[in-house]
């Protein structure tokens, strides 16, 4: 604690004791400690859990979720929420097959997918900033519209294969390391740089933490918010391509459940729905926890249904933990 003496001289804050420091450390890295605990416990309980093939398997599942969570984090940081990500993923994946399947021109596919993601993000962002629609409803509406367009376009039953390049990115490995993991690392590094090192990131945190402050210091909060939704849309589109490449075939439900999973992962990772608080590393840790727990359920031979039950418990417990710590 700091204080001021009666004559206004600064009083140096007492050095925190070691017990305090340990507590602060534990509090700050609680989420990482939790992941470590899950991994260690998993390794002890299920021998196959830490095997190379299982780790690779988990990584492959982690990547698409990780990419979406990064975008979701941008949006949640500005007090938003993006329910349209799963719909964007599926639409991007469906679009990827629309260019003549295996013979498709990869850059064209890529550009189309990103275009779709950016457009949806733009609509979400405009609804939120211009019309002052609550993010929940705005992204819910675009999710539904997009789903309808996709169904109508594909007549309800898309079929087809993704171009080989996406198969490689989605499922291939390079010296044992999945390509898509490298892909995630690049996206995560770019996202973290944007959030934590750039002026844009600073504006984003101020806007999310206190929109009135942002306005008063001359930050164009609407533009920053809009950008966050576009980032989320674009990353969702990319995640859709990666996931489609991983699975190999495309249906209307690529990415189903990712909208809620990505929110769960971000919240578990300490990104506050009230805005202005959270990091890319935290959100990715949250995603990793979800993937590890889901995998562990299978490795322990528990019924698959236990996955979603555990997911439900984890989000409530994690959110309670953050709320309690804030008090």
């Amino acid at each position: 604690m700091t204080g001021t003496s009666p004559i206004g001289m600064a009083v140096p804050a007492p050095r925190p004791g070691s017990a305090d420091r340990i507590r602060a450390f534990a509090s700050r890295y609680a989420i990482l400690l939790f992941l470590a605990a899950v991994v260690v416990a998993g390794g002890l309980a299920a021998p196959g859990f830490l095997s190379g093939s299982n780790l690779t398997n988990m990584l492959m599942q982690f990547v698409p979720l990780g990419i979406v969570v990064i975008g979701q984090t941008f949006v949640i940081l500005v007090r938003g929420l993006d329910l349209s990500v799963a719909s964007v993923m599926a639409t991007a994946a469906v679009a990827a097959t629309a260019f003549g399947g295996v013979n498709a021109d990869a850059p064209a596919v890529f550009a189309t997918a990103i275009g779709i993601g950016a457009a949806v993000g733009l609509v979400n962002g405009l609804l939120v900033t211009k019309r002052n629609v609550s993010p929940f409803l705005a992204t819910l509406a675009t999710m539904i519209v997009l789903q309808g367009i996709r169904f109508a376009w594909t007549q309800g039953a898309p079929s087809g294969n993704v171009p080989p390049i996406f198969r490689t990115i989605g499922a291939g490995t390079f010296n044992g390391i999945p390509y898509n993991v490298l892909f995630l690392l690049v996206v995560a590094a770019a996202g973290a740089a944007a959030l934590h090192l750039s002026g844009f990131g600073r504006r984003l945190y101020i806007t999310g933490g206190n929109p009135l402050t942002a306005h008063l210091v001359g930050i164009r909060a609407a533009r920053v918010t809009l950008a966050a939704y576009v980032v989320s849309g674009v990353l969702a589109a990319i995640a859709g391509l990666v996931l489609a490449g991983f699975v190999g075939v495309v249906d209307n439900f690529v990415g189903r459940g990712f909208e809620l999973d990505s929110i769960v992962a971000a919240v578990v990772g300490g990104v506050a729905l009230s805005g202005g608080k959270g990091t890319i590393a935290g959100a990715l840790t949250g995603a990793a926890i979800l993937v590890a727990i889901s995998n562990l359920v299978v490795m322990l031979g528990l019924p698959v249904q236990a996955q979603i039950i555990l997911k439900g418990i984890v989000i409530i417990v994690a959110a309670s933990f953050y709320v309690a710590r804030r008090r």
Partner: peptide
């Protein structure tokens, strides 16, 4: 399929 589109537009 378009019913979804319309429903979404009505919300908006």
């Amino acid at each position: 399929h378009y019913q979804l589109v319309v429903q979404g537009l009505v919300i908006i």
